[in-house]
Design a protein around this nucleic acid. Structure first.
Length: 390
RNA sequence: UCCCCGGUAGCUCAAUCGGCAGAGCGGGUGACUGUUAAUCACUAGGUUCGCGGUUCAAGUCCGUGUCGGGGAG
């Protein structure tokens, strides 16, 4: 059984994939992208909901925090609950009651993160399930089919996310493989079939000529957008920024640019400054569950003893439910006591913080003052500049 | 009054034949980047109940006191 997501579309399909740039400020772009479930205003941060849920948050929480689009993951959703079940339930949107756009990662990151339990070949990736050890084969065609069943608005091609430290020869061969897989994904999924967009993924490790080669090959294929993969895999911040600044401006200007898996508030601003439009990262939600909260004054580890009696809000400049309602002392208590609502309140805040950040970036670009906005955040978050704790 | 068991980190407890006093939890911190993560790492806490003895060496053996638990009368 196949699922046709066009059944419950909210958008005029004639504009599908349309990417309109409304303003620029240096390399930074203020734009919008039309998907089957709505128009995304960029630059945007996309909360990660690997298993069909942004951990600890319900759709209402996400909407209240201002989320426009969330992620799902092909590998995880295939294993559980299964893409065919999702198709029977009307796709992930209907199953999870999330009416806005969804982007699905292809499983390419699991090639990196689950490298102990997978085998690569020309035809695809064989994974051993991290849940029960069973074997599963992900070809580019299979990954397209799974994402069809999930019904995501933006699908990603299967790629090999190369680990940091890979040598030149390996990285070169890997990028060629990623290109061949990208072509097969495009062939398996004709443009805008089911109202679903498809993005290619740039690889090439930390070799600029390989990154450029990857980009040249990918741009010959008709994708709706292009992603930078293989960053934030263990390299230093300067190495990441150096590659980002090199490759992002070379990407097609008339298509959305997506920096996968990045990053911290400063990483995101660096990316926007280099011309990137879309970001996703587990950092706000994972850190929230581990007690690290982002505020306009810097990072706050809510577990710290100094907040035991602190009646002030987490972030006086934040409009989120958590900051409007509770004191740091109470949030600390909830976290230390391991209360479940702690994970929700913390996640809600961190997501709101990241979404506020990109909203401010959009406004700043429109007003030609992006550099000032970035400088303000660097002031707060740069190492040795008050990064840690206020 | 007698008999038995016990007293080791803030808490609950380990420690071989007498051979460098440890763990878990708790405390104090840090890390986390397309989620195998409500996870992981680091760190500070000691008159081993007191006193005396044996021994090269005692948390450990002996004597005595003390505190707690149990039993007998």
């Amino acid at each position: 059984m196949t699922h046709d997501p066009t059944n419950d579309l909210t958008t005029d399909l004639t504009n599908l994939g349309q990417f309109t740039i409304h303003a620029t400020d240096g390399q930074a772009r203020r734009a919008s992208l039309t998907t089957a479930h709505g128009v995304i205003q960029t630059p945007i941060f996309m909360p990660v909901g690997t298993q069909g849920s942004v951990k600890a948050l319900a759709p209402d929480d996400l909407e209240n925090a201002g989320a426009q689009i969330i992620l799902g993951n092909t590998y995880h959703l295939y294993l559980r609950p299964g893409d065919e079940l999702l198709a029977r339930k009307g796709g992930l949107h209907r199953f999870a009651n999330w009416t806005k756009p969804i982007l699905t990662d292809s499983g390419g990151f699991q090639v990196f993160s689950l490298k102990e339990i997978r085998k690569l070949s020309e035809d695809g990736v064989e994974f051993r399930s991290h849940l029960d050890g069973s074997k599963h084969f992900f070809s580019p065609e299979k990954v397209m089919s799974i994402q069809n069943n999930i019904g995501s608005d933006i699908m990603m091609v299967l790629d090999e996310c190369v680990a940091y430290g890979a040598d030149y020869d390996y990285t070169a061969k890997s990028l060629e493989l990623t290109t061949r897989w990208a072509k097969r994904c495009r062939e398996a999924h004709p443009k805008h079939k089911n109202g679903q967009l498809l993005f290619g993924i740039n690889q090439g490790g930390f070799f600029k000529d390989l990154r450029e080669r990857s980009l040249e090959q990918l741009t010959e294929i008709d994708f709706d957008g292009f992603a930078i993969g293989g960053l934030s895999v263990g390299e230093s911040i300067p190495e990441m920024y150096d590659m980002l600044q090199h490759i992002a401006p070379l990407m097609p200007a008339d298509k959305p640019r997506y920096l996968m898996g990045v990053g911290t508030p400063l990483d995101i601003l660096e990316g926007i400054g280099a011309g990137v439009d879309m970001f996703d990262c587990v950092l706000p939600t994972r850190n929230a569950r581990n007690g690290t909260l982002y505020t306009s004054r810097g990072k706050v580890n809510i577990r710290r003893a100094e907040y035991r009696e602190d009646d002030s809000p987490l972030d006086p400049d934040c409009q989120c439910y958590t900051c409007r309602t509770f004191s740091k002392a109470y949030l600390r208590h909830l976290f230390v006591a391991g209360e479940i609502v702690s994970y929700r309140l913390n996640s809600l805040h961190n997501i709101a913080f990241f979404l506020t950040l990109v909203r401010q970036a959009r406004e700043a670009i429109e007003q030609g003052r992006f550099a000032q906005l970035k400088a303000r955040y660097v002031d707060v978050f740069a190492p040795g500049n008050g990064d840690g704790i206020k």
